[in-house]
């Protein structure tokens, strides 16, 4: 996909600081974005034709594949807005890889890309509003996560500082989870029959391996990775310092993304979700895991906003909250579907 190329050109832009390269990177991103938009619309109309339910009811956001694609779309849209608003391209080198990785993840895991028939509960006009707004909010939150994390990387120096330990831990865990999932994928492709769904295979090659040796080894490796990230975290800092990003701008983007995402999440995710649940299940709130985790996410971002607006917290403190908030988002989006059961299990395959 174009985003991978865009990622490389953004990095090239950072390396050479030539404006032409930057323009090329932006152009590639925009081209990719337009291509993706077209692909989504195509799928949408194809689905509308297949199901015969009318255009509005057949938004292509009803399973994990479609939702991930849409998430990437929102992320790139959000990034392009920021690029034009803040006139800073360095940021692209962080967002485009996320988009590219998410799409690669879709390709590698072999998540079903088929257009699947809709279960009756999803046939509603609320689908479009609820899912679109939730994902726009998720994209805004992931923006705040990456800026928040970068802020922490930039502004912490001492190894015994709490926020330094926090970000290295987060970063390390992210890395480890990704790596072990990558391992799962590799072995999955090689050994396991394709009819076993990958969900039940998660972490089987490393942390949940039946063999104790492999188990201990992977835990050991995980701790070593954490230690390395902690020990050499300042390298990342110098890398980011080279890109002309300043801490204040990162702080502002973090705040703005959350201030933008929070009301959309409230209205689209919680309120519209409640109304739809009321229509479909007969209860507007049933403490279903997905609902509960959305509420937890909502609390964390509410905490962020209170900390910033009432107490005037700035910088590291709230950046930590924004990172924690995004972990909750990740869990609400993926974790609940993969690990917990409930009414809301549409996005798990």
């Amino acid at each position: 996909m174009a985003y991978i190329t865009a990622m490389m050109t953004y990095i090239a832009y950072l390396a050479f600081k030539k404006s032409q390269v930057g323009i090329a990177a932006t152009t590639i991103t925009i081209t990719g974005f337009i291509a993706q938009t077209a692909a989504i619309i195509l799928r949408w109309s194809e689905f509308a034709e297949l199901s015969g339910m009318g255009f509005l009811r057949s938004a292509p956001m009803t399973n994990l594949y479609e939702s991930l694609v849409f998430f990437v779309w929102c992320l790139i849209a959000g990034y392009l807005i920021i690029e034009f608003k803040f006139k800073n391209r360095s940021f692209g080198a962080f967002i485009t890889p996320v988009a590219g990785l998410a799409l690669a993840f879709i390709d590698l895991t072999g998540i079903s890309k088929e257009i699947q028939p809709l279960v009756p509960a999803l046939k509603s006009n609320w689908l479009l509003a609820h899912v679109t707004m939730s994902f726009i909010a998720y994209a805004a939150f992931s923006m705040s996560f990456s800026t928040g994390l970068m802020y922490l990387i930039l502004s912490t120096g001492k190894r015994n500082e709490l926020s330094y330990i926090f970000w290295t831990l987060t970063f390390g865990i992210f890395f480890i989870v990704l790596a072990s999932m990558g391992l799962d994928l590799l072995t999955f492709k090689v050994m396991v029959k394709p009819d076993i769904f990958i969900k039940s295979y998660l972490f089987k090659t490393s942390f949940l391996n039946p063999s104790a040796v492999v188990k201990i080894l992977s835990w050991g490796l995980a701790f070593i990775t954490l230690f390395i990230v902690w020990r050499y975290g300042h390298v990342l800092r110098t890398v980011i310092e080279k890109f002309d990003l300043n801490a204040d701008m990162l702080d502002e983007i973090t705040y703005k993304s959350i201030a933008f995402g929070f009301p959309i999440f409230t209205l689209g995710g919680l309120v519209f979700g409640a109304i739809w649940a009321d229509q479909a299940w007969g209860v507007y709130w049933s403490w279903d895991p997905k609902e509960t985790w959305s509420l937890i996410t909502w609390f964390i971002y509410a905490f962020y906003l209170h900390g910033r607006m009432v107490r005037g917290w700035k910088g590291k403190k709230v950046a930590v909250v924004s990172v924690v908030g995004f972990m909750a988002v990740m869990f609400t989006y993926l974790g609940v579907n993969l690990l917990l059961s409930g009414l809301h299990s549409y996005g798990s395959q």
Binding site: W287, T292, L295
Partner: peptide
């Protein structure tokens, strides 16, 4: 509320 809710979802 958040922490206890987590237990409730598990």
């Amino acid at each position: 509320i958040s922490l206890t809710s987590i237990i409730g979802t598990i």
